[in-house]
Design a protein around this nucleic acid. Structure first.
Length: 550
RNA sequence: GGUCCGUUGGUGAAGUGGUUGAACACACAUGCCUUUCACGCAUGCACUCAUGGGUUCAAAUCCCGUACGGAUCACCA
């Protein structure tokens, strides 16, 4: 196509493609370093699947001495959300992830391969499109949406392959005179690739995760530049990843079917394609069907969900690591105290079929993680959570700091600590009865022994004659047994089991009476510790409260 | 409809032709321990790897068909 016409189509371009090729030279990185990117469109909040993908990207880049950068794909101007970039950066940062290069805020960026916001790279894309136009590898298309729709219907009814290709791509055959005439009329147009691909030829692509993939060549005249002058995803991705020297494109597997398009574009532009790595989606079972986790339908898809529930980010990352590399879990079991960074990930250990998102497993990981924190850390983190999501609870934690820490410490400093909490949200329901200001229960969880006279008898006897604040745990328990013997309860479990009729109950029943009277709950951590923390004064108050109610 | 991908237990999965009578983890069940709970310990949990056929001395592992599931086919990414 002649130069004047091309300049009419894509006006105002001051550079040629060689200029850009020189502007963005080869990166100076160690052999085998992986350069990859996170390339979201700023259309809302970050999805847990994005974090999953990002985790893999960061891991692979960092362990090879490479780079991961943030590129904003905002070529769809209609779907943009206000402060979209900040939201992405914030959500990502909340999982402890940051970028080596790329967009850093709405207005700032870092690195010498920018701009990293696609809408600011318009001239670059157009320059490459212009080059294609000049070489007869692209052409303007004035077809309207209605005409396109019409074309599709024709193809459907005659059972042809759907798409704008070959003889169906009518604008291919426009003469330069016809183009000029339409331009004179001011008709809107787009730029399409004049595809030389042949549907009957096959191409082979090696995906780092899925292995050998085979497709027919793409022969569709893909849109390169849209009506608004901005490129389509396909065109922008190919140019950006070439110019930014991306070595590995790590993205969701909804993209595998556009691989022929991307390979084709790399070819016409004379680029060497990067290695493609398509990761499977996180899925969810709904009835009998399995589908991708969806931001709209599934609350657990939003990153904010985990923060609100108080699931520590470490646990979420652990879960994502478990799902991403099949050998991670075993490795982690052998390296209990190792950091995630010490694990060495590989593409071929990433599964190809989507993992069902398993909340149980995540919570289990979280429970284990939280059980390993010190009481002090547990307290601080619970407090930090409460300050964000539950003011009243935060206040209580501050007022009862020492009690809270002592309570959280029960059976924590041991080889295999208690696993009471999977999220900070649960701490409240586990701890409230320790705070005297909160203790005024409406009901008590009485178990086997429910006769109130008997309960009073046990409580009075125990506190009047047996409890001593200064006892060690052994002394405490042996006195508990003495109390049982005195009241007709079995102090020895084996004896009780052999002949339950001979006793009113056993030492477990007596302990339960005391536990419930003091806490209103039948399940609590170790009673001895709880009594120590409450102290005699508080216990008297509670027994008194109970006796007045019944 | 075209194109492509996948299918090992309730879940994540290991496993690429022969110590797999299918590892490991989560969940579940039972028992033990035990002051409740939690922890811990022990045991159980796939009539065999979607299904039919083929190759082979030998197949979850290789080949073909079928079924089911998923992705994609925009001037969205």
């Amino acid at each position: 196509m002649k130069k004047e016409l091309v300049e009419r189509l894509l006006p105002g371009l001051t550079h040629d493609r060689e200029y850009y090729e020189k502007l963005y030279p080869e990166r100076n990185l160690p052999e085998g370093a992986i350069v990859t990117r996170y390339a979201p469109s700023p259309t809302g909040f970050v999805h847990i699947g994005n974090i999953f993908q990002l985790y893999i990207s960061c891991k692979m880049a960092r362990q090879t001495g490479g780079i991961v950068f943030l590129r904003i794909e905002d070529t769809d101007q209609e779907r943009l959300v206000e402060n979209g970039i900040s939201k992405i950066i914030q959500d990502v940062a909340s999982f402890g992830i940051s970028f080596d290069e790329g967009a850093m805020s709405e207005t700032e960026e870092k690195g010498s391969y920018g701009p990293y916001i696609q809408s600011q790279r318009k001239e670059i894309y157009q320059t490459y499109a212009k080059d294609l136009l000049l070489n007869g590898l692209a052409y303007p298309d004035f077809t309207t949406k209605e005409e396109l729709e019409q074309l599709r219907k024709e193809q459907e009814s005659s059972k042809r392959r759907i798409g704008y290709y070959g003889k169906w791509a009518r604008s291919r055959f426009l003469t330069e005179e016809e183009i000029e005439k339409k331009l004179d009329q001011g008709l809107p147009y787009i730029i399409r690739l004049k595809n030389t691909g042949d549907f009957n030829r096959r191409i082979v692509v090696y995906d780092a995760i899925r292995g050998k993939l085979e497709f027919p060549e793409d022969d569709i005249d893909q849109v390169l530049i849209k009506n608004d002058g901005l490129p389509t995803y396909h065109f922008a991705h190919v140019i950006d990843d070439h110019l930014m020297h991306t070595t590995h494109v790590i993205r969701g597997d909804e993209w595998v079917s556009s691989l022929p398009v991307h390979i084709g574009l790399h070819q016409v532009l004379g680029f060497k394609p990067p290695v493609y790595c398509h990761i499977p989606p996180l899925t969810k079972k709904e009835g009998n069907t399995i589908r991708k986790l969806s931001k709209r339908k599934d609350s657990e898809a939003a990153v904010s969900y985990y923060h609100a529930m108080g699931i520590p980010v470490e646990a979420v990352m652990l879960y994502l690591a478990t799902v991403s590399n099949s050998n991670f879990e075993e490795w982690y079991l052998e390296h209990e105290n190792a950091s995630l960074d010490d694990f060495s990930m590989s593409f071929d250990k990433i599964g190809t079929s989507g993992a069902l998102f398993d909340m149980e497993k995540l919570l289990n990981l979280s429970r284990n993680f939280l059980s390993k924190l010190s009481a002090q850390e547990m307290y601080e983190r619970t407090l930090a959570w409460a300050k964000m999501y539950d003011d009243a609870f935060a206040q209580l934690l501050i007022e009862n700091r020492d009690i809270a820490i002592s309570f959280l410490n029960i059976e924590r400093n041991q080889e295999k600590p208690r696993k009471d909490y999977a999220m900070f949200e649960e701490v409240k329901s586990g701890i409230w009865y320790m705070f005297s200001s909160e203790f005024s229960p409406e009901s008590y969880e009485w178990q086997k022994i429910t006769d109130l006279d008997e309960i009073h008898l046990v409580l009075n006897t125990y506190f009047e004659s047996y409890y001593n604040e200064n006892d060690t745990e052994e002394e405490w328990f042996s006195k508990m047994k003495d109390c049982c013997d005195a009241l007709g309860y079995a102090s020895n479990m084996k004896e009780y089991k052999q002949n339950p009729e001979a006793f009113k109950g056993n030492v477990a029943d007596v302990s339960t009476i005391i536990r419930v009277a003091l806490t209103s709950k039948s399940r609590t951590p170790n009673l001895y510790d709880i009594m120590k923390i409450l102290g005699l004064e508080e216990m008297k108050k509670r027994i008194h409260y109970f006796q007045n109610r019944s």
